[in-house]
Design a binder for these strands. Structure first.
Length: 417
RNA sequence: CGGGGUGUGGCGCAGUUGGCUAGCGCGCCUGGUUUGGGACCAGGAGGUCGAAGGUUCGAGUCCUUUCACCCCGACCA
């Protein structure tokens, strides 16, 4: 991609109506556009980051046997009435709408009911189990107050997975397998060290805990108590002596921290499947309850968290595997030889599958460097008269101060690695 | 939903106790000089002041209503 063709531009100033650092950085750099409170559009660069994160999640969900589907945003009222979740008194952040004939519809905020409805024809036999399906889709929640940029929106991108098991034991095994996949996701995103599996309220439908994945951050909305040695934490909402005993945690080992909920997994038991009257038939021909679990990861929330967490005074510092481009190739000067050398390296790297953002604009060096920094591209490569005099180019990592002069071959080797 | 705050060209802001054709910086367009950390000079386009109503000879400035946005809190399957 050439910068001259990228329709977004960077800005020196952040809009006054955004206070949160993640939104300020992402808007200044042209990754996102705020449409209204809690609702953001993803522009080309932002879309690439969103997709990169989604793909990491997708790979890990596939690796544990998840099958990707795409369910509907529009929801019929009746299935939600069966589980007693249609009533605004029960779930108050529904967006609802109507068909022309007056029929009420819900706008998807989660998909337990629809996924059971969609799968019920296929999971009637014990031979069909276990089943793991997931989707990556926009969710809509009528939050009373959207805030913190991408961290709490009314429309957001979420990966939600649902598991179906024949027994509690089968469910528990799946649940732990998926929890391990979550750990891998956060490790791959560079958040492994500061993300803790956290016991939290299981919801009104179960005695059990749910497990949140909380990333330590001063911008976190949740208060959690962390046992660093065990790499476990407990959410303040369930922080009682009785619960600590259940969890095998000791008060003196816990430290109070702020966390951003980057994932949440719930044991649902047979609450939804029973309510929707969906069962499986066992070896003896008898109907049995289906044990369900659900597993969420806020993809767009991660975009915001990563942008805010990996940043310095110059801008964003994306981890390599989520950055929209791997290389920011800055051509300094418009001389034919410089343009040709830069163009050649751009083509060479692009042909090798390296994502390069080629700054071919006729603007000053400082502006290109500032943009490279603000955008947070992992590698910056400079080609100018100066570097060409030595038949070289300059390469610098976003995370480092110093640049190095290397041959074109050497640069290609590093960047295509 | 309770409390607090803010709406003036694309963005950031200034507009005295109401008073002349509503300013400044950035960005944008044209020309020129520049060219390794967001250059400089000259010229130019662009706003009816969130919206509606009212008071007044006169409203960006005052009043009423309303919408939107931000922050704190509550809420968050």
């Amino acid at each position: 991609m050439k910068v001259s063709q990228l329709f977004t531009k960077t800005s020196k100033t952040a809009p006054a109506d955004e206070v949160s650092k993640n939104a300020q950085l992402l808007i200044r750099a042209g990754y996102i556009h705020k449409e209204m409170a809690g609702v953001y559009a993803y522009l080309p660069l932002g879309k690439r980051v969103l997709d990169n994160i989604a793909n990491i999640v997708r790979e890990e969900m596939n690796a544990v046997g998840g099958q990707e589907v795409q369910m509907t945003v529009l929801q019929p009222k009746d299935i939600w009435e069966k589980t007693d979740r249609w009533d605004d008194a029960k779930v108050d952040n529904w967006f609802k709408t109507k068909l022309a004939n007056g029929t009420e519809l819900g706008v998807g905020l989660t998909h337990e009911e629809p996924v059971v409805d969609a799968l019920k024809d296929f999971i009637g036999s014990y031979k069909d189990y276990p089943v793991l399906v997931y989707q990556i889709q926009n969710k809509f929640r009528n939050e009373l107050r959207a805030k913190s940029g991408l961290l709490r929106g009314r429309e957001f991108v979420m990966k939600d997975m649902y598991s179906f098991a024949r027994s509690q034991q089968e469910h528990d095994e799946l649940y732990e397998k998926i929890a391990a996949a979550y750990v891998r996701v956060y490790e791959r995103l560079g958040l492994g060290d500061i993300t803790y599996r956290t016991a939290a309220d299981g919801g009104i439908f179960t005695e059990k805990f749910s497990d949140e994945f909380q990333t330590l951050s001063p911008i976190g909305e949740d208060t959690i108590y962390v046992d660093e040695a065990k790499r476990l934490a407990v959410n303040k909402e369930v922080y009682t002596d009785e619960n600590l005993a259940k969890l095998g945690l000791k008060k003196e080992d816990l430290q109070e921290k702020r966390g951003v909920e980057v994932g949440n997994i719930f044991p649902l038991e047979s609450k939804y499947t029973d309510a929707l009257d969906v069962h499986y038939t066992d070896e003896n021909g008898e109907a049995q309850s289906i044990i369900m679990g659900c597993y969420g990861i806020g993809i767009s929330r991660l975009v915001g968290l990563l942008a805010e967490h990996f940043a310095d005074d110059k801008g964003i510092v994306w981890p390599d595997n989520v950055a929209p481009f791997r290389v920011y190739l800055a051509q300094l000067g418009t001389e034919a030889e410089v343009a040709e050398a830069a163009g050649n390296l751009y083509k060479l790297l692009t042909d090798r599958g390296v994502a390069v953002l080629y700054d071919d604009r006729d603007v000053r060096a400082g502006e290109k460097f500032a943009d490279a920094d603000l955008l947070g591209i992992p590698y910056r490569v400079v080609i100018s008269k100066k570097t060409l005099a030595a038949n070289q180019c300059e390469i610098k990592k976003r995370t480092e101060e110093a640049a190095h002069m290397v041959s074109m071959d050497e640069a290609t080797k590093i960047l295509a690695a």
